[in-house]
Write a protein that binds this DNA or RNA. Structure first.
Lengths: 251, 251
DNA sequence: CGAAGCGTTGACCATTGTCAAGGCCAGTGG
DNA sequence: CCACTGGCCTTGACAATGGTCAACGCTTCG
């Protein structure tokens, strides 16, 4: 499936530079860059999974179409993400560019050979797969027990954290996807997404920067956003310890 | 995370016997069997992930507790399943026996050493991780866009298929978990689970065998169950091809 | 200027959650 | 042996969250 770039972020924070020869990133470095126009598919659900891709620039959506045109987006891909590692014979989802995007590809054969031979690459790939599973778990928690407001806040919080990690001084989230994409990702309708955002603006949690650019959202109160996300993130690491002791918390 | 035993089923169908030395299963064979009483935890969310477990017998639930006592079950484990492969440093969920259960454990160190050294084990582990990701995707689809009835039917269908694959002549599903467990797994409340099952009985789709044994469910109309699950499984493999062509179907 | 795409808003409705009560069975203690 | 209690499940009445349908505003593009 796809891999978020959390691992990359962590690595960047550590001592190891990104362009070191044993970095996952560098595997793709020599491949030619491919350009995708907005809306252009990278591959379809059901296609034979011949390649692994690295996103260089832009945003892609990863989704499955279920009956009667219902679409479920299982993830978004951004610069640095790798897609196609944890797959067997065929892609089980479609990947499609949301914005104009650049990617590089590697055949599975090449990729696997490189990973098997490299003592330092293997744990990196493994870490990515683990992060991917963890993200899937989080999404399952979100979908199975969070309210619309919690879903939206969790989603925005994730992008806010990303922006902060990238060193942005301003608490501004640049969403490259449409409301419909957000809805299909969060298991909501476009109307509920819209209404919930409006309500959050009313609460003073956030603001849409410019009526013309509704994809740029300024988070006015990050703390409150985290509260409303309902992740208990306010208490940070203490949470796990408490749960391990069989306790409950919040509210 | 955890691995379903689909891979094992497939292997059993193929030529390779299960007790061959290069089988994942055989790795655990020499470990002592540990016994868990119903309700007993195997490990807690947050614990250091030191071991990988194989379930020998019984059923376990894998879950996370989120705020105010809300519990999300992300999976059930049955005989043959392996848990703990796709994890980094700590368990990110709690695993707990539902019924009395038997497990065997292997330290991650041992497990990883064995897998790295074995040419034949590596693809098996990889296949399991892929299956696990695919299962997580399916669950995300279920949670983000299926109705209560579709969820229940999908759930029962999965267990029906398992029973059929095990060679059971009777279309009977033996659920080892409580209604509450089902609810927490399917993102519903216990009342909705109960009502939906009652409604399915009313439609003649299934029947509870004995009022005293509500966990034994006979599927009266497997075809209708599949229909109601809304997975488009009625059309089988054609589905992927159609979607690859950008088409839609069902109804 | 008109049309299309996207987002917002409103009115209404349905599915599901919440709260409360009751049935059934098993286990326990009188 | 029976009554009592607790766990689990079911059922009912009601509320609420979110979905559906429809209209409208804004922007862009021809």
């Amino acid at each position: 499936m796809f891999l978020t770039d959390y691992a990359k972020t962590f690595n960047a924070a550590a001592a190891r530079p990104l362009d070191e020869p044993d970095c996952l990133h560098s595997l793709f470095a020599k491949q030619p860059v491919e350009y995708l126009a907005a809306g252009q598919p990278l591959f379809f659900e059901g296609d034979e999974a011949r390649h692994i891709f690295e996103v260089i620039e832009g945003t892609l959506r990863v989704f499955r179409i279920i009956s009667e045109g219902r679409r479920v987006i299982t993830g978004f891909l951004h610069a640095g993400d790798v897609i196609g590692v944890s797959l067997r014979d065929n892609y089980i989802y479609t990947a499609e560019a949301i914005t104009a995007a650049k990617v590089r590809r590697l055949s599975r054969r090449q990729f696997e050979a490189a990973v098997i031979n490299s003592e330092s690459l293997r744990p990196k790939v493994f870490a990515r797969v683990c992060d991917e599973m963890a993200a899937a778990q989080d999404q399952m928690v979100l979908l199975s027990s969070k309210s619309a407001e919690e879903r939206i806040c969790t989603f925005l919080l994730k992008y806010l954290k990303r922006a902060m990690a990238e060193g942005n001084a301003q608490p501004i989230v640049e969403l490259s996807m449409s409301r419909q994409d957000m809805a299909d990702y969060l298991g909501l309708t476009i109307e509920t997404v819209s209404r919930t955002i409006t309500r959050l603006i009313g609460k003073g949690v956030l603001n849409v920067l410019d009526p013309a650019a509704r994809h740029s959202i300024r988070i006015e109160r990050p703390g409150m956003l985290a509260q409303l996300a309902g992740d208990d993130d306010d208490c940070g690491d203490m949470r796990r310890d408490l749960i391990a002791l069989g306790e409950r918390r919040r509210h």
